[in-house]
Simulated assay, not measured.
Amino acid sequence: MIQYSLKCSRDHTFDSWFQSAAAYDKLASAGMVTCVVCGDAQVDKAIMTPRVRPARNAQTTELQSKQVDVATPPADIEKVLADLRRKVEENSDYVGKDFAKEARKIHLGDAPERAIYGEAKPDEAKALIEDGVPVSPLPFLPTRKTN
């Protein structure tokens, strides 16, 4: 496995793991490496610093103590996602697992046109897209009521 720092044509930077350098080259040439921020397919390797393991007896340096946990998104991203969730929930109807069926009915004119959100299996979403139904995945899971 190899980790690359990547950069899209819109200057978004992100990291990704690949099975090998050849695997990255194959995926990139097929247009299958896309920016995690904007979806841009024009992605190149960015300049990387090598990972060198410190000596066993080395003390923690100031740089090491200031490492950022990339698994935890910054607070401003969480705020943007929370605002997006609120707007979606306030301005559209939750149709649950009937999303694909309801979206298709709206597209065909068999149901009144309105904004909806819900859940669909990957094959259902793919079929909607292939049939020209305008759908888009949301960057969060719907809140389910358990009782």
Rank of each mutant, 00 (worst) to 15 (best):
M1K: 09
Q3F: 14
Y4S: 05
S5Y: 10
K7P: 01
K7F: 01
C8I: 10
H12R: 02
T13I: 06
Q19T: 06
A22F: 03
A23E: 14
Y24D: 01
L27F: 07
A30R: 15
A30L: 15
G31Y: 11
M32A: 12
V33S: 09
T34S: 13
C35D: 03
C35R: 04
C35I: 01
C35H: 01
C35L: 04
V37C: 03
G39C: 06
Q42G: 01
Q42T: 11
D44C: 12
K45N: 02
A46E: 13
I47R: 10
M48Q: 14
T49R: 15
P50G: 15
R51I: 15
R53L: 15
R53N: 07
R53P: 05
R56H: 12
N57H: 11
N57M: 09
A58I: 08
T61I: 05
L63S: 14
L63Y: 15
L63R: 15
Q64R: 14
K66Y: 01
Q67A: 15
Q67K: 07
V68I: 15
D69C: 07
T72I: 08
P74I: 13
A75G: 04
D76H: 15
D76S: 10
K79H: 13
V80S: 10
L81I: 14
L81S: 02
A82C: 06
R85N: 02
R85L: 04
R86H: 13
E89D: 05
E90V: 07
V95H: 05
D98T: 10
D98I: 04
E102I: 14
E102F: 11
R104H: 12
K105D: 09
I106K: 12
L108W: 06
P112M: 12
E113Q: 12
E113S: 14
R114I: 00
E119T: 06
E119P: 00
A120N: 00
K121C: 04
A125G: 07
D131I: 00
V133I: 12
V135D: 04
P137H: 01
P137T: 10
L138H: 01
P139A: 13
P139M: 10
L141G: 04
L141A: 12
P142K: 07
P142Q: 04
